[in-house]
Simulated assay, not measured.
Amino acid sequence: MKRFIDIGANLTDPMFSGIYNGSVKHQKDLENVLERCWKVGMSKIIITGGSLSDSRKAIEISQMDNRLFATVGCHPTRCCEFDELDQSNYFQHMKELIETNRNKVVALGEFGLDYDRVQFCPKEIQQKYFKLQLTLTEEFDLPLFVHCRNAANDLLEILKDFKCSGVVHSFDGTIEEAKNFIDLGYSIGINGCSLKTLDNLNTVADLPIDKILLESDCPYCEIRPTHAGYQFISKENILPSVKKEKWNPGCLVKSRNEPCNILHVLDVLASVKKIDSFKLCEQIFENTNKLFFKSYLVNAIVQISRPTIPFYSHSKDCYMYNGRRQEDIAISEFVSGYILLEGEQKYFQ
């Protein structure tokens, strides 16, 4: 079975509580949603935090399962909240949220710049509080989950002042913009919104596979029949769906994207890049673990005679393995429940 990590799922959205535009259409079904994605090979999901309150909820949901993680940040269209809720307190609460949930918070964000929706927050405010949030990297050694809409040049200029790694998620820009972000040390996040047009497909076809990450960005960014990429989705990966008014726990809800649909994104990528889907999926799986999960280090001496690693946590501490520091050992993969170190499989208790 293919193995996936969804780097961006908006599981805090009211749609997963059955609420659409303020109206209740069906019962909460997040557990059904998660069960569907585990069945198709999902290994981990990173729940996106788009504001202080949203980040709190993302962490709360992540407590449901050890395969769920979260980000903490403020989306560019919501940066006016810093002023509305008192800048210093808002920022301090963000720091405390990260500090007290190190075992669940794997990235800073979602933050960045969005010049397509300045009606929600002016450019100057977006830039001011994006820069402020980037100072969190001085205290927390976490990758960035970056938002960019029609703002690549300004975003690049700001990021150049911070020596960080991360991902530019939901990428829909040009190949030149993608290469600039990659040269700066960033990966490129691909979802349905990255695959709408022929230009989009030409762009992703040229991306280096060691810099690609997958995301659903659910409940948004599904690949629709009108999108250029839709023709490449395998029919076997299109699961049954019903209208929200006819909700069924065993079916998807029409027009509500879910993590399990990450299969569609892989189908399109593999087709346009003309790469075997299993090979591509494994490469992306490795890319994602290297960026978001290699800092989950074991704070203990590994006893080679034992079949288990007793503990892991998000920490800068290193552990020893056969007399070598962990940071000198290549981690070939780190998935829910086990880690592979130099070919040896060690299971967590």
Results as ranks from 00 to 15, higher is better:
I212F: 14
S241F: 15
F285K: 06
L291I: 03
R306W: 15
M320E: 02
E286Q: 08
V204A: 11
H314A: 08
V253W: 09
C218H: 02
C251W: 08
V302M: 12
V302R: 11
N287D: 04
V335K: 15
E215F: 15
D276I: 13
V253R: 06
Y220E: 03
L291P: 02
P208V: 03
K244V: 01
L269C: 10
S216H: 10
Y230Q: 00
N248W: 09
N202G: 05
C260M: 13
F311C: 04
S305Y: 11
Q326T: 04
K235E: 05
L207N: 08
S271H: 08
G323W: 09
P310T: 06
L280D: 01
Y220H: 09
R306F: 11
I209H: 06
K294A: 14
E236M: 15
S241V: 10
D276T: 07
V242K: 10
L239S: 04
V253T: 01
Y296S: 03
L269A: 02
D267T: 13
I275S: 01
D210Y: 13
H264N: 06
L297A: 07
A300L: 14
Q231H: 01
R324N: 07
L252M: 12
A270W: 14
F232S: 02
V242L: 10
G229H: 08
V242W: 01
F334S: 00
P307H: 10
R324A: 05
K211I: 09
G337H: 07
D267W: 15
A270F: 14
E333H: 08
C260T: 07
D317V: 03
G229D: 03
E236G: 08
I238M: 15
G337T: 06
T226P: 01
T288Y: 05
D317S: 09
S216A: 12
T226M: 07
K273W: 09
N289E: 06
S315E: 02
H227D: 07
A270E: 04
I329G: 04
S241C: 00
P249Y: 08
H314Q: 05
V242T: 05
D206V: 14
G229I: 10
S271I: 00
Y312Q: 05
S255G: 11
I301E: 02
P225Y: 15
I301F: 12
Y220F: 15
Y296C: 08
S234L: 15
I262S: 00
F311V: 00
P307R: 09
D217K: 12
I233V: 03
E222W: 15
R324I: 09
L207F: 10
F278Q: 02
E245Y: 13
V298M: 13
L297M: 12
K254F: 06
I223V: 11
A228L: 05
Q283A: 09
A270G: 07
S277V: 10
F334V: 03
Q326N: 06
E258G: 10
